[in-house]
Amino acid sequence: MNKLIDYFRIGPVFRYFINVFRKPGPNRPSSVNLRMMHGINRISILMFLFAVIVYTVRHCVR
């Protein structure tokens, strides 16, 4: 049963979403490739949230 709970644990996912929008600390590596990857991830997260909001509004209006 404990393995099933660990399988559906989504805390690390939300922690990543929050950390993508933060500035990197002095101890974290920073390269052009890493900054580009995080920039693309930010755009993807924002587009996904926008799509969920649009879908929810359209579903509620019907």
Rank of each mutant, 00 (worst) to 15 (best):
M1S: 09
M1V: 08
M1W: 07
N2F: 11
K3H: 11
K3A: 15
K3M: 13
L4T: 11
L4R: 10
I5Q: 08
I5E: 11
I5K: 12
I5T: 08
D6H: 10
Y7D: 07
F8C: 06
F8E: 03
R9H: 12
R9D: 15
R9C: 09
R9L: 09
I10Q: 07
I10K: 04
G11D: 15
P12E: 02
P12Q: 02
V13Q: 01
V13E: 02
V13M: 07
V13D: 00
F14C: 01
F14M: 07
F14S: 02
R15D: 15
Y16R: 10
Y16C: 06
Y16I: 09
F17C: 04
I18Y: 05
N19C: 05
N19R: 05
V20M: 04
F21T: 03
F21G: 01
F21Q: 07
F21S: 03
R22T: 04
R22I: 01
K23V: 07
P24L: 08
P24M: 06
P24A: 06
P24G: 04
G25I: 04
G25S: 15
G25T: 14
P26H: 08
P26Y: 08
P26Q: 09
P26D: 12
P26R: 11
N27Q: 13
N27E: 14
N27T: 14
R28V: 09
R28G: 05
P29Y: 08
P29I: 11
P29N: 10
P29E: 14
S30E: 08
S30P: 00
S30K: 13
S31F: 03
S31V: 05
S31R: 05
S31K: 03
S31M: 03
V32H: 05
V32F: 10
V32E: 07
N33Q: 11
N33L: 12
N33P: 03
N33I: 12
L34Q: 06
R35L: 14
M36I: 15
M36A: 11
M36Q: 09
M36Y: 09
M37E: 06
M37G: 03
H38F: 14
H38W: 08
G39P: 01
G39W: 03
G39T: 09
I40A: 13
I40G: 02
I40C: 02
I40H: 00
I40V: 15
N41S: 14
R42M: 15
I43R: 04
I43L: 13
I43P: 02
I43C: 08
I45P: 01
L46Y: 02
L46F: 05
M47L: 15
M47P: 02
F48L: 12
F48W: 10
F48E: 00
L49F: 08
F50K: 01
F50H: 01
F50V: 04
A51V: 02
A51I: 01
A51Y: 04
V52Y: 04
V52I: 13
I53E: 01
V54D: 12
V54H: 01
Y55K: 08
Y55A: 15
Y55P: 02
T56H: 03
V57T: 00
V57R: 00
V57I: 07
V57Q: 00
R58E: 05
R58M: 14
R58V: 05
H59A: 14
H59V: 02
H59R: 15
H59P: 00
H59M: 13
C60N: 13
V61K: 07
R62C: 04
R62G: 12
